[in-house]
Design a protein around this nucleic acid. Structure first.
Lengths: 135, 135
DNA sequence: TATCGTAGGTACCTAGAGGAAAGTGGCTAG
DNA sequence: CTAGCCACTTTCCTCTAGGTACCTACGATA
């Protein structure tokens, strides 16, 4: 039996001492969690297939894993309706909603500085790729 | 030749459309970048081995990869002194420093809510592990 | 002469995340 | 009587991030 709450990479102990925000980063920014939380926050309570279709490139297996993980962490609420065919609804919890200022800060930083990152990449590539390519 | 600026996992296009902050998350919260930026911000300009020792569990190869990536993204500045033995110093850039409110928000959320995540995990595990273990 | 130290580069190997595809159960529509 | 639906679950397979180990230059030190 596979463990559907499995997390990508357990952090070495030392790196947590070197950086106190590592635990939060693992919870909130592990792979796929950001699109899932964002979609749940944006479109409200929805079913499994809706989530799957909106995110688009995620597979059912991984979506299940991540939803279990988020449910276990208390960021997402799962409601199971024992009908036929079965119906399951997911929604963001209060704890999950408390992340919204964080996401807002991220969006603000992105709008203000993402362009500078891209510019820095162009500079770096121009300076380091084929540095002997002069006329 | 190995590419020292390689990034863990290139995001599928669709997930960016589903979640506008995915690009920033990949830049700032890819593996090891948080401890590196935190350490550079906390202890100031320092050499390669100092970073390596402070973070503790990272290997030299991966540290080099991540530093190259951060340098390319313009978040970290690298200064090479052509001495013998060679001396290289790393420091956080202005662009990197502009992330500090984001990190502060993270630290605040962590202090306020991380305990609730842990409590949610205990609840989840108690409810789901060995649910038939009754007397 | 041999060893040490820095800041990596490089080759090889493994563990594990994640993708693809098929199975499951039970009702319902054709 | 078959096919389809949902929400997974399971098996199999691939890919790659990351670890280990060894290599470099050059001078100082023992």
């Amino acid at each position: 039996m596979t463990d559907m709450t499995s997390r990508p990479a357990p952090a070495p102990v030392h790196s947590e001492q070197a950086c106190p925000i590592v635990p939060v980063v693992e919870i909130v920014f592990s792979r796929w969690t950001t699109p899932i939380l964002w979609t749940l926050n944006e479109y409200g309570r929805q079913r499994f297939v809706e989530l799957e279709r909106r995110i688009g490139t995620i597979t059912a297996k991984v979506l299940t894993q991540r939803l279990r993980q988020l449910e276990r962490d208390g960021l997402v609420l799962r409601t199971y309706h024992p009908e036929v065919p079965p119906r399951v609804e997911y929604e963001i919890s209060d704890l999950g909603r408390s992340l919204s200022p964080l996401f807002a800060t991220l969006a603000t930083w992105s709008a203000a500085h993402l362009g500078r990152v891209e510019a820095a990449r162009l500079d770096y590539d121009a300076a380091h790729r084929l540095p002997a390519a002069r006329t």
